[in-house]
Amino acid sequence: MLRLLFALILFALPATAQEDVADLSPLPGWEVHATDHDFNTLVQRTRDAIGAHGLAVVTQAGPTGAAARRGIEIPGNRVIGAFNNHFAVRLLRQSTEAMIHAPIRFYVTENADGTATLSYIAPSTLLSPYETAADVASELDDVFAAIAQDAVAR
């Protein structure tokens, strides 16, 4: 009888557990752009804008799919690393240590209301410890701002 009761309780549990995750809040040095786009749309628009502004998507990662395979439901969450060899070579010439921050990442998060937010730490903030990289950082600030503007536009 105890086994039957345990089995009934087990099957009554939801197939996936939903985890509470807070919407992203701006932090110092971050650029945060709330949008009306859904998560998948904003991810694709960000990828498209990265290419349109001369960078390449170098990395992508996010816990959403792996969590779902474990039976845990979390909001959409994707980190997209963007860079190109032109900036890499220039940055290396100015500061070998600064390359630890390449690729520089965009962060797309799904909000509780189904919209998505595009965020990134300004390249000048990331590269501020490396004074010799200031000109590359400033140029990357402009490129990242243009990418974000295109990605979040209606």
Rank of each mutant, 00 (worst) to 15 (best):
A116I: 12
F106R: 04
I147L: 07
T64Y: 02
N40C: 00
Y107Q: 05
S124Y: 09
Q149H: 05
P28T: 07
L2H: 01
N77I: 06
I74P: 04
F6I: 13
A7R: 02
R47I: 15
I74D: 05
L5S: 06
R93W: 01
P14C: 15
Q94T: 11
H53T: 14
V57A: 12
G62C: 12
A145L: 08
F11Q: 11
A52S: 14
R90E: 11
A151M: 04
Q18D: 08
L13I: 12
V108P: 07
A148N: 01
E131K: 11
E110L: 10
Q18P: 01
R154C: 02
D135Y: 00
L55T: 10
A153L: 02
A153F: 00
T46P: 01
G71W: 02
T59H: 08
H101G: 01
R105S: 15
S128T: 09
A15P: 00
E139G: 03
R69N: 08
A61P: 00
L126D: 07
A137F: 07
V79E: 03
A134G: 04
N77C: 04
L13M: 15
H37L: 11
A134Q: 13
N85T: 15
Y130F: 15
A34P: 06
I80E: 00
I74K: 04
F144E: 01
I74M: 10
D38M: 03
A82S: 06
E19Y: 10
H53V: 13
L55Y: 09
Q60N: 08
S25W: 05
A82M: 00
V32L: 15
L24Q: 10
R45S: 10
G51I: 09
F6V: 13
Y120E: 06
A137I: 11
V152Y: 01
T16A: 15
V152E: 01
A22D: 14
G54P: 04
A153V: 05
F106Y: 14
W30R: 00
A88V: 13
D141P: 00
V32K: 07
A67L: 09
A116V: 13
A151W: 02
T16W: 06
A146L: 03
G54T: 12
N84I: 06
N111P: 02
G62H: 08
D142R: 04
A66V: 11
M1F: 09
F6K: 08
E139V: 09
Y120A: 09
R105D: 12
L140I: 03
D38Q: 04
V89Q: 09
Y107F: 13
Q149G: 08
R47Q: 13
A98N: 05
E73F: 02
P129C: 15
T41G: 04
Q18R: 07
N84G: 05
A122F: 03
P63I: 10
L126Y: 10
D141E: 02
A7I: 14
A146R: 11
S25K: 13
V43M: 03
L127G: 14
S119I: 02
Q44Y: 04
L91V: 11
A66M: 10
I100A: 15
Q60L: 11
P103Y: 00
P63M: 13
